[in-house]
Write a protein that binds this DNA or RNA. Structure first.
Length: 547
RNA sequence: GCGCCCGUAGCUCAGCUGGAUAGAGCAGCGGUUUCCUAAACCGCAGGCCAGAGGUUCGAAUCCUCUCGGGCGUACCA
């Protein structure tokens, strides 16, 4: 990579200058210049170490420059208060492009993760209704994060944890039963806290056709039957919704299995052995506050039933036992306190601090004529994810969901997104890919046997070198996006690259009369298209050959 | 009250491990097509980076406080 190339030059110059190591070790920093007149790369080393060396920054910069090797460098400058600006030679860029072409689809990948196992748990919505736009954001964030982690060399598993036990499920079951009675024409009110959505009516109707019996009594057998039916139908519905979004899970984990296997009980015993629990007011409590939690939390209610946190702790022990090196949970901002308490439990159990991390995201609000509306399932103010995908298409939805940084609120102008789809950045990015494809279709005799062997000596335009510089940055972007839970960086990057390419395409002809020039430019486009394809792949957005 | 997140162009948002003149898209105005797809390109206009202090050679970025918005603070999940 270009950056590490410059870094190595600077390092050798610094070591030469500081050969007696009289001063403390300083970190050598190289960054990409953000203005063309500042060169390709810039370093503030003279600014940060001037005080240590007792020299003025500009004088120090000159000393370093005197010791810099000349190979690969077009020009060096001292600028402003003492920045060292590097202007690289064309050959260095051409070499970088060759490397990008050679790497092909592997260019975004690195071995940072060393094949360590990462589990990413996301969505994990209760199977009590269809997914909403809010779940959609989490689904896309989790899915893209998973792709990013696997790109940087981790072995990734996507997991969905579903609640198939407890009060919510009972409520769902009774709601379905009420709907079932209703489709038989009986006056059966829905439970007050029940699920009022239309979707249960459909399930009830299907059930009627299968059973052919009115089932007047909600007995144990009926409860079991309706529970199984409700759960399996709801999970199928959720899977369908996720499928439309292009999100697929490696594992669906049932909460009920944790109870059946005795893992919940065992988890409590483990916490007890570590001295992390105590009894009070007839309940069993987790001493969370002492370990960084927000406050002590009830694990076992006074009636003997475990709380959600208790079961969740058992679930995380289960994850640990499955030998994941790291687990990441993607959750909405409303779970913040829960996360701190879960972390406290992990500390009590003695798990490494970095075993569990949370990726937090803010909610989606929808803007309509009468102002901003917050999604609320209970108040019936929500838009189903499925509706949105049908309206806007998978690619647009995925882009919208991932284009903002997770910790920002995502305000969606639904009407605008719906009617102005052609002004959408997604199409802008996709079109840049399509343009490349189109040129290759027209290139005919210019298509070389091997792209990596093309003569690049005529690729010297500033725009061209600038594009190579941007391509070169891609692996860094992928890595940063993964490690800092910032998938939006990839979306941002794709947009920038598409913009640079569109401008280049407008200003320069690719297919010319000159064989060498044409092949060189085609090679550049080959690199551009390859990186565009990789960004789209990471985002889960399609890369169309024609539009 | 306490904890976390956010406050940058008219709108939606990047930039925040401090760096040299704060960016993009949309909306507005004005241009570009005998030529590889105009789903594109160019130009104009638009900002006391919520506010006040502090640290620093240097702050949108770090620290403190204030104001404004969201979320949490259950023997709910």
């Amino acid at each position: 990579m270009l950056k590490s190339f410059v870094h190595s030059l600077l390092k050798s110059a610094w070591q030469d200058f500081d050969h007696n190591r009289s001063s403390e070790v300083i970190e050598i920093e190289v960054s990409r210049a953000d203005r063309p007149e500042f060169g390709d790369f810039t370093s503030n080393i003279a600014l940060t170490s001037a005080a240590i060396k007792g020299m003025s920054p500009r004088e120090l910069a000159q000393q370093i420059i005197n010791r810099l090797p000349h190979e690969g460098i077009k020009r060096l400058e001292i600028a402003g208060p003492g920045f060292i600006n590097f202007f690289l030679s064309d050959e260095v860029f051409q070499r970088a492009l060759r490397g990008i072409i050679l790497a092909g689809e592997r260019f975004s990948q690195s071995s940072h993760g060393n094949g360590e196992r990462v589990q990413i748990e996301f969505v994990s919505s209760n199977p009590t209704g269809p997914l909403t736009i809010g779940h959609g954001r989490q689904a896309v964030l989790g899915d893209v994060l998973a792709s990013l982690y696997s790109a940087i060399g981790y072995q990734v598993s996507r997991e969905y944890y579903f609640n198939d036990e407890g009060e919510q499920v009972n409520m769902l079951t009774r709601s379905l039963w009420a709907r079932y009675r209703q489709v038989w024409g009986e006056e059966e009110p829905l439970p007050e806290q029940g699920y009022h959505g239309e979707y249960l009516v459909k399930i009830a109707q299907n059930l009627k056709e299968r059973l052919h019996k009115p089932l007047p009594h909600f007995d144990t057998a009926a409860a079991q039957l309706f529970k199984e039916e409700a759960l399996s139908q709801m999970i199928a519905c959720i899977k369908d919704d996720l499928d439309l979004l292009g999100v697929q899970f490696d594992n669906w984990f049932s909460e009920a299995t944790l109870h059946k296997s005795g893992e919940v009980k065992r988890a409590l015993e483990m916490l007890d052995e570590k001295g992390g629990i105590y009894e009070a007011d007839g309940a069993i409590w987790l001493a969370a506050e002492k370990y960084g939690g927000t406050k002590d939390m009830v694990l076992i209610r006074s009636d003997g039933r475990p709380t959600y946190l208790m079961v969740d702790i058992a679930y995380h022990i289960n994850k640990w036992n499955r030998k994941f090196n790291y687990v990441i949970n993607i959750q909405g901002a409303d779970h913040h306190a829960q996360q701190l308490n879960m972390k406290a439990a992990m500390r009590i159990l003695g798990y490494p601090e970095d075993f569990l991390t949370y990726g937090l995201h803010q909610f989606v609000t929808v803007k309509e004529q009468d102002g901003v509306k917050k999604m609320s399932t209970r108040a019936g103010r929500f838009i189903e994810l499925r509706t949105m995908i049908e309206d806007l298409g998978k690619d647009v939805v995925r882009y919208f969901m991932v284009a903002r940084k997770p910790e920002s609120h995502l305000e969606l102008d639904y009407a605008l997104a719906k009617q102005q789809t052609m002004d959408n950045p997604v199409y802008y990015i996709q079109y840049s890919y399509t343009r490349c494809a189109s040129i290759f279709r027209n290139a005919g005799k210019f298509i070389p046997q091997r792209w990596e062997e093309v003569d690049l000596s005529l690729i010297t335009q500033p725009v061209e070198l600038d594009i190579i510089c941007l391509l070169d940055r891609f692996p860094e972007v992928v890595k940063e996006a993964a490690l800092t839970f910032a998938p939006h960086l990839v979306a941002e990057y794709a947009l920038t690259l598409a913009g640079k390419f569109h401008r280049y395409y407008t200003d320069f002809r690719i297919l010319t009369a000159d064989q060498t020039l044409t092949q060189g430019r085609l090679a550049l486009l080959w690199g551009v298209q390859s990186v565009l394809r990789q960004t789209l792949q990471l985002l889960g957005i399609s890369a169309p050959e024609e539009m």
